[in-house]
């Protein structure tokens, strides 16, 4: 049941995008998302779409795989669209229930833009996670945030925690599935009943899950210590981050996109 979520899970293949430095992808994604909020006309979105299409094409991740992951957030998308569609004041086009609910020209425009923005935002950020191993990603983050060390922010520890959390998510999801089935076999009911009952029904699921998570954490800490882990000091890197020529080209493309997108999009 829970294993169907593919949103943002690393897709293993070898492409130019996969090989880019994670810092390029992190920075690029951030700038791409910011750029979406500057657009005020259709052209901005067209350029963003073209840029995204280029990235997807280069990444060789099947478009269907990306769309499949989007299903998880379809509900959120529909609600946002509905809100904007019905609640934006302006020139009414159609109205129902004696004018209490109406759709305006501005509402449609806004709903379309919001929907596009949301879709691009999600596709854009999942392009990053689809093409970058979580370890690589945390490495990139660690290096980008290194200046924060001056302010006593435990950058390495946070990065290590993130990467471990990511490794254990699939394991814990599978475990949740198993515990759920086992409790259903004992007559537990996770699907019906009122909110309070449902919340109560989660106890037989959550208690074993937490205990298991703690046990795993304990085991893992032991295993890490046994392999000489002692924090970030004096640690070597198996895959040190060094900018390549392709990263320079990628930054250039990003810059061009930003100039074109924001320049035209704000006209």
């Amino acid at each position: 049941m829970l294993r169907d979520i593919t949103l943002g899970q690393y897709y293993q293949t070898d492409s130019v995008i996969h090989r880019l430095d994670p810092r390029v992808k992190l920075g690029g994604t951030l700038l791409f998302i910011i750029s979406l909020f500057f657009f005020q006309n259709m052209w901005g979105y067209v350029i963003a779409a073209a840029f995204l299409a280029l990235v997807i094409h280069l990444s060789t991740v099947p478009f269907r795989y990306i769309v499949k992951g989007m299903r998880a957030i379809l509900f959120l998308l529909l609600i946002t669209v509905a809100f904007n569609l019905f609640l934006t004041p302006g020139t009414p086009l159609v109205s129902f229930f004696g004018g209490h609910v109406r759709i305006t020209y501005e509402g449609i425009r806004l709903a379309v833009f919001i929907a596009l923005r949301l879709c691009f935002l999600i596709i854009g950020s999942s392009m990053m996670t689809l093409t970058t191993t979580p370890n690589n990603l945390t490495d990139g983050m660690e290096k980008m945030l290194r200046p924060l060390k001056l302010f006593k922010v435990p950058v390495h520890e946070v990065a290590m925690m993130m990467s471990i959390a990511l490794r254990f998510i699939p394991i814990l999801l599978e475990e949740t599935d198993k515990i759920m089935k086992a409790q259903i076999a004992r007559g537990a009911d996770f699907e019906s009943g009122k909110l309070v009952q449902r919340a109560k029904a989660m106890v037989p699921l959550l208690v074993p899950l937490f205990i298991s998570a703690f046990r795993r954490a304990n085991d893992l800490a032991l295993a890490m210590e046994a392999r000489c882990y002692r924090g970030g000091e004096g640690r070597a890197k198996m895959k040190p981050l060094i900018y390549q020529k392709r990263d320079g080209i990628a930054y250039l493309c990003l810059g061009l996109y930003l100039v074109a997108g924001i320049g035209i999009g704000r006209l």
């Binding site: 191993t133 046990r215 085991d219 392999r227 002692r230 640690r235 198996m238």
Partner: peptide, 20 residues
């Protein structure tokens, strides 16, 4: 509960990384 890396080779590299 003892594999730290997300990719096999990264996990095997974990010990030597720690040793510098």
């Amino acid at each position: 509960n003892q594999i730290i890396g997300q990719v096999v080779e990264e996990d095997v590299g974990f010990g030597p990384e720690n040793m510098g």
